[in-house]
């Protein structure tokens, strides 16, 4: 097993080998999750705390389910409406939790880099469930697994990532992962929603959606993150849908067997036509949700193995 890190903070620090090992392990959990009895005991006796400083239903549910299926004791903390309101700092919250000896800390935070900061202050494994506009590694991994299962490979594909790239941590993590796995990445967005300097990461930039979709194997749509915008990035949702919303006509520019992805939650009629989203021949959006649980199980399994190895080594007084 290649993946040896204490935390999973981003795709940036993973090697292609690490990524492959996560995906391979996740495949096994996909099978497990399809059984009637979905129980494993790899995290038995371990405590997992989900700390969400930003409201989320889907990701939190996915992590909770992943932890429970692996046999961990899972606790959810909606920090969005707790002690943070009383003025406690992120580090104090982290230290308080750390004193309760959790083994896995799943953290989402609205500020970029906040999860890195927190990880430096605790001695359990930290899993980044999304920090600001920075990274969302499990999303990129589940997308990779979905693509690999649908396309049979995760190399030499042309992947178009379309929409609100500027505010999207999903786009950043995917961009890094797909680049590491030697795919062609295209970013399609109105110029106001394209982060500056992003072409230096070795991707192609398009503001014309049809041109960007030309010959794509995978079309990855992003949600328009209205909550992160301080106004005026696009003139209106209807104009955005007209120019950047994925409909049958625009999708016809991509390869005939191109798959359509969306990290959810979707704004139907804003970035994606409902008919496309529901088209079982093209859309793998429901698969993404399924892969999400499996990938998170794989990540937590690997982190728990590393944690055990580290603690075991400490116990016998050697270094790893």
């Amino acid at each position: 097993m290649a993946f040896r890190a204490r935390h999973l903070l981003g795709i940036e620090h993973l090697t292609p080998e690490d990524i492959r090992s996560v995906l391979d392990l996740a495949e096994k959990y996909v099978d497990l999750n399809r059984r009637t009895v979905k129980q494993s005991d790899v995290l038995a006796g371990m405590t997992q705390i989900n700390m969400f400083f930003e409201n989320s239903t889907r990701t939190q549910a996915s992590f909770e389910l992943a932890g429970k299926r692996l046999g961990a004791d899972v606790m959810n903390m909606s920090v969005a409406q707790s002690s943070v309101k009383k003025g406690e700092t992120l580090i104090d919250t982290a230290l308080t939790l750390n004193a309760m000896h959790p083994d896995l800390l799943v953290v989402r935070h609205p500020s970029s880099g906040a999860v890195n900061l927190l990880a430096s202050k605790v001695n359990c494994a930290v899993l980044n469930a999304g920090d600001g506009r920075h990274e969302h590694p499990t999303q990129a991994l589940l997308d990779a697994l979905t693509i690999r299962r649908a396309k049979g490979r995760i190399q030499r594909l042309t992947v178009a990532i379309c929409g609100d790239v500027a505010h999207s941590r999903v786009a950043r993590s995917n961009l890094i992962l797909l680049g590491k796995m030697e795919n062609r990445v295209r970013l399609i967005a109105p110029p106001t929603l394209m982060p500056p300097g992003v072409q230096e990461f070795g991707c192609e930039i398009f503001d014309d959606m049809r041109a960007g979709l030309e010959g794509a194997d995978v079309v990855m749509m992003l949600r328009l993150q209205k909550e992160r915008m301080d106004g005026g990035f696009i003139p209106s949702e209807r104009e955005y849908f007209h120019r950047y919303g994925l409909d049958a006509e625009k999708l016809s520019c991509a390869k005939p067997d191109a798959i359509v992805m969306h990290p959810g939650p979707m704004n139907r009629g804003v970035e994606i036509d409902g008919i496309i989203a529901d088209d079982i021949n093209r859309s793998v959006i429901q698969d993404q949700v399924e892969m999400g649980v499996a990938v998170r199980m794989a990540c937590m399994d690997l982190l728990a193995r590393n944690l055990r190895a580290e603690r075991g080594a400490q116990a016998v007084g050697t270094y790893v």
């Binding site: 970029s112 880099g113 920090d131 600001g132 920075h134 950043r172 500056p196």
Partner: peptide
């Protein structure tokens, strides 16, 4: 307004406004 870094590859990679 609201900026904490300079536009470019680095700020985009780190997701800093």
């Amino acid at each position: 307004r609201g900026a904490a870094a300079t536009n470019g590859k680095f700020a985009s990679l780190r997701g800093i406004p």
